[in-house]
Design a protein around this nucleic acid. Structure first.
Lengths: 173, 173
DNA sequence: GACGATTATTTTAAGCTTAAAATAATTCAT
DNA sequence: ATGAATTATTTTAAGCTTAAAATAATCGTC
């Protein structure tokens, strides 16, 4: 028996943090908790309703937004996973007939990956349900709160990208 | 030929979303982007500076906050991973000598996992550096902004837990 | 106190993920 | 043009992760 239904008080990574801990750490752990909770719901929904995994869905979603297809490297960037990861993921989706690979004419190192008609159809069948799940998960927030959250996350994203490796040697204006 | 410089603008999952897309989806994807970026930094830092993986560090961190140790199930809840996952993670950390398992005297199904002195020492050696990484990543936000973000994420967390499976049959006040 | 239901954990099979090394094609400065 | 450096991708080995089934112990009830 699996016991993964989070009924009752959830005791996650961040709930146990004493309240005098560092603010940065608390925000990070709460952010991680939210991301994990949402991801778990979406993953379960995709499996139960569509028998597909989250990584495969994410890859299809990227291709759906790119009518001309994407290279392996572009997929790796957008999904924020290692390039070696994409190789296997693409292989599995090709063998399922949901995507197709074609060598790039100009650069023989590259290949371009596209949705097949079947892949497009499969993705379109999942989108409305997926969007409903997300809407439900955010139902407790007003549009103003979501906008505020979006803005703060944008600032955080810039902060992250401004720190770390190469922060000093940026050549951007 | 690629217009994407290695340092230049990052093209991740959410950057490509048209701005008329649903607000909920945009917040979710930006949240995911931030979580992925932070996780990647921490993962790389732990590997480079301490030769440890993120899951192992996370498990040690949970045990550090639990002087009396935790059961396998408690670890699974707190780290928000499957119970089967914990089995292997604990095995590896036991074989490294960083944690120890002891059968629960009252319930022979359970076992209690604790940090060993070596594990405590190893974790204490990593903590300050880890905290510095997090502080750096959040350096672009004021304390007020972090507090606001923390509050919005708390609201989101409640929203998530209030939706989904069993939302109607909650027995909590 | 026996028995069905519940709970804690492990096992299994498959898939995901990473970092590092390897392969192969392109670019660039001679 | 040649060769060094760069870029795109695959391979490899190890580890992580999940869902589902299996095992085993406890609990509740009669």
């Amino acid at each position: 028996m699996d016991q993964d239904a989070p009924i009752g008080p959830v005791t996650d990574r961040e709930s146990a943090l004493a309240r005098d801990d560092k603010l940065e750490l608390r925000v990070w752990l709460r952010l991680l908790t939210c991301a994990n909770l949402i991801e778990a719901r979406v993953r379960a929904g995709l499996r139960e309703d569509f028998s597909i995994t989250l990584p495969r869905f994410d890859l299809l979603a990227q291709l759906d937004r790119a009518p001309d297809g994407l290279t392996m490297g572009e997929l790796s960037d957008r999904l924020m996973v290692s390039n070696g990861n994409i190789t296997g993921l693409v292989e599995r989706l090709v063998s399922e007939g949901l995507i197709a690979r074609a060598p790039s004419p100009s650069d023989r190192r590259r290949s371009r990956v596209k949705l097949t008609p079947a892949g497009k159809r499969a993705f379109d069948a999942m989108t409305p349900t997926h969007e409903r799940w997300i809407d439900d998960l955010f139902a407790g927030l007003s549009r103003a709160e979501m906008a505020e959250l979006l803005a703060l996350l944008a600032k955080l994203k810039r902060s992250i990208q401004g720190s770390g490796p190469g922060a000093a040697l940026k050549d951007n204006p």
